[in-house]
Design a protein around this nucleic acid. Structure first.
Lengths: 209, 209, 209, 209
DNA sequence: CATGAATGAGAGTTCATTCAT
DNA sequence: AATGAATGAACTCTCATTCAT
């Protein structure tokens, strides 16, 4: 029994958390294992002991993220009483998650911009699960006659593409506004306003006339 | 007719072209100046002679891209005879450009995922010009009573976000389809189909009832 | 008894020693970190691990030297029983140190010829301490009425300037003598003779008539 | 006949002058041919055309210096009417030259700190000529019975060592004074005062009692 | 006489990774 | 479980020098 209680799980979690933050801020390449070790307050070699190497740590960081978001969407969907509501819940949950964990959009966009070159299997599967969820909602709506037939992946990308860009460009848009406010770049829009607008756009396009 | 090339313009252009390709495939960090020099068939030091440093080369590469796309949109807009047409031209031009120069979406997403941390002024200005273009179209439509009031940046991100993701994920979606084709991920959709769908979605959401 | 060396202190000392030698022979710029690493039998990166960068190593090398000389002078001064003796001890100690560690005058002259452009704070402080020591001796002599009032820095530079030049030009003077011995350039003078001569010169100039 | 009169001599002189300044400020290694070319307003390649290489330029710069100082001392000596006066003229001329052309002491000290490793023959000869001059004065004084027997090289180094250090450390001493003025480092002494003090010191030590 | 284009050889520095304890 | 010491392979950037005109 050691003096200081050193729980492997706690240490590992701390490393994962710091890595997630750093990877999202600086990207995979620009984040060094030294950075992560320092932030986590552990020795660099320990990272290799736990995660084999930098790529292994990255993979673990990434796959954790999508599982969380998947769970949240599933959960939110539970308390809906119409398919339209479910669509709304999807948009709302995703947007709120993205705004709350602003490292997430950065990581996702960067990952997708690689054409999945390094995309670990695990992460791909997790990402896909979220997409399947939306597909199910759209199909259900179609069957019920409340949505017209659509191309699910386009709807999906329209939702998450817009939200992700809004989150990652937030500081940029704020800066732009200070320089030139003649064009509204929604620099101070609330998450709610954005969520609503995106949902309405999607809904209108799916509407059965 | 000399064997030795000593034409600054030609050499510079060659470097820029190879750099563009490499940056888009591997990103800024993972692309080395050695790579670029080798691909361009020039001595590494020449890159520094012309572009001061790696970041300088990157900045020139990026701003060149947006200027090109801006010009193409402006050009396409010229032969339109309604504001709705102009919107269509915007979507179509952007989509076609993105599909044709598939390195572009990767570069853009990667850049935006950095929250503009390294975003050179030059590039920011070029990007903004494209956005302003769309804003003008939307405002004109409003004034004419053919579009409802909208949030330009959301419309913009909806268009380019969707297109960029479709382009960068193309190989990924193809791979996914081979594994599991139960959910349509539009792996073989034509540029035209995608353009049309996106345009219609946007149009419906802007429609005055 | 392990074969592999993992003793930080020993390794660090070895690097410092080799660096000192190389810097004194070739100067800061012409000495490469590769040279130092090779001489020390360590990996180049280890230099950065211990000293942050080349300049940091240099600073450590230099301030170490002055601290040593300071200590030696203080020590020698301890066993003196007159202020004149103390002055003699100063000259003698400095001269003996300079002749024994002949890399030192080279490093010092080179450093001072830079007008302190790169002079690290640490080193400046160490250098100054030696000067203050001499100042104290001179002041004490004044108070006691054995020395006339003098300008300490001039006395200091007269002593160390002469000694340093004698040491660094030793090979040059030997070479010169072989070519033309009509003018005595003291090519084979002993340290003792030089020390005595310098001391007497200074003493005479300080003498109260 | 070209439009703009481009006199080779003028261009060469300009390069030499700028090189002298730069070498004295930054030393041989840290001065780049780019620096010199830019300062001189000429193309880099021209330096190679005129001086073969960087070392050649350096050699030309250096040997020019000592010839000048030699001439000035010889000249000053001409209007003296005692050997003591001649000694005074030597100190005075050297000090004034050093203070006026403050790049000179830096170059000299740096050069001497190399133990003449790179010292070009030409420069060595020029330096030696100045020393011989002093030797002659000292010998003459001895013969006349006004000076005691001395070691010429020590007298020489005492004079030029002190002066050179005073000039090169001027900025350093000024800085030191601002921080701590408890010890006088002669930060604001005039050239005249320094010259006088050095001369008197030397004179006293040579005095026949 | 003068220049812009181009190069080769390295220099300092960084970093993922491993070793020994 | 955890650490400081050590390494090898790269990477960015610099610079003296040369080429072609």
């Amino acid at each position: 029994m050691s003096k200081v209680k050193r729980d492997a799980k706690v240490t590992k979690a701390k490393i994962l958390q710091e890595a997630r933050t750093l990877f999202s801020i600086k990207g995979f390449d620009a984040t060094t294992t030294d950075d992560i070790a320092k932030s986590s307050g552990v020795n660099k070699a320990l990272i290799y002991y736990y995660f084999k190497n930098k790529a292994g740590l990255y993979a673990q960081v990434m796959s954790g993220l999508f599982d969380t978001i998947y769970d949240e969407v599933v959960c939110a969907r539970g308390s809906c009483n119409s398919t339209t509501d479910e669509l709304h819940a999807f948009v709302k949950t995703y947007a709120e998650y993205a705004y709350k964990h602003s490292y997430f959009p950065a990581l996702l966009l960067r990952e997708l911009s690689d054409s999945g070159a390094h995309l670990p299997e695990l992460m791909f599967a997790s990402m896909r699960k979220v997409f399947i969820l939306l597909s199910e909602i759209l199909q259900k709506g179609e069957r019920e006659g409340v949505f017209i037939k659509s191309i699910p992946i386009l709807v999906h990308f329209m939702i998450i593409g817009t939200i992700n860009l809004m989150v990652t460009t937030a500081p940029l848009r704020k800066k732009a506004m200070e320089i030139d406010d003649s064009v509204d770049s929604c620099a101070e829009c609330s998450t709610d306003k954005i969520t609503t607008d995106i949902f309405q756009t999607i809904q209108k396009s799916l509407e059965v006339k």
